[in-house]
C-alpha cells in the first residue's frame, strides 16, 4: 500500500473526506446525514491516512489522542443536554437560538451540539481502533 501514488494522493482524499464528513454531520438535521455517518466518514479518512503515511503521522495529524476526542464528544453531548437546566426544563429539552448574520440566519441548537458530540465520539473511537490495529504493521499487534 505504500506506493508513491497512494502516498501523494492520500492527503487530498483525506482532506476532502474530512470536509465532506463535517458537511454531512451538520446537514443531518434536515437531510440524510448526521453525526454517526459523519463520524464514520471522518474515521475512514483517518484510517486511510494511517495506511498511507503511517500511524504516527496520522496521530500527529489528529493532534489529540483519539480516545480523548471520543471522551470530549461524550462530554459535549452530555453538557448540551444539561443546558436545558437553565430554562428550568427537563434534561435534554432542546433550545434553539437563531443568529441573524446579515442576510442569513444561522440556527444554533442544543441538538446540533449533541450531534457534533456524536460525531466526535464515533470519530475518536473508530479511529482509535483503526490506528491501534495499524500500529502492528510489520511487527505484530
Amino acid at each position: 500500500m505504500n506506493t508513491v501514488i497512494f502516498r501523494t494522493i492520500a492527503p487530498l482524499i483525506v482532506g476532502t473526506m474530512l470536509v465532506f464528513s463535517v458537511y454531512i454531520c451538520l446537514r443531518g438535521h434536515n437531510e440524510p446525514g448526521g453525526g454517526f455517518i459523519g463520524g464514520l466518514i471522518a474515521a475512514s479518512a483517518i484510517a486511510v491516512l494511517g495506511m498511507s503515511s503511517g500511524r504516527d503521522a496520522a496521530r500527529r495529524a489528529l493532534r489529540f489522542d483519539p480516545i480523548a476526542i471520543a471522551a470530549a464528544g461524550v462530554l459535549l453531548a452530555a453538557s448540551s443536554g444539561l443546558l436545558s437546566l437553565f430554562t428550568g426544563s427537563a434534561f435534554m429539552t432542546s433550545i434553539w437560538l437563531y443568529l441573524e448574520l446579515g442576510e442569513t440566519t444561522v440556527p444554533l441548537s442544543t441538538p446540533m451540539f449533541f450531534d457534533i458530540g456524536v460525531y466526535l465520539v464515533v470519530l475518536g473511537a473508530i479511529s482509535a481502533i483503526g490506528l491501534g490495529l495499524e500500529t502492528d504493521d510489520g511487527e505484530g499487534l
Binding site: 448526521g34 454517526f36 464514520l40 464515533v122 473511537a125 473508530i126 481502533i129 505484530g140 499487534l141
Partner: peptide, 24 residues
C-alpha cells in the same frame, strides 16, 4: 438500527482484537 449498526461495529472490533489477543 442506525445506532445498532455503529455499536455493532464497535463491539465487533473489540471482539476481533480480543480474539486475536487470545489467539496470540
Amino acid at each position: 438500527i442506525l445506532t445498532a449498526i455503529v455499536i455493532g461495529f464497535a463491539m465487533f472490533s473489540f471482539l476481533l482484537v480480543l480474539a486475536y489477543r487470545a489467539y496470540q
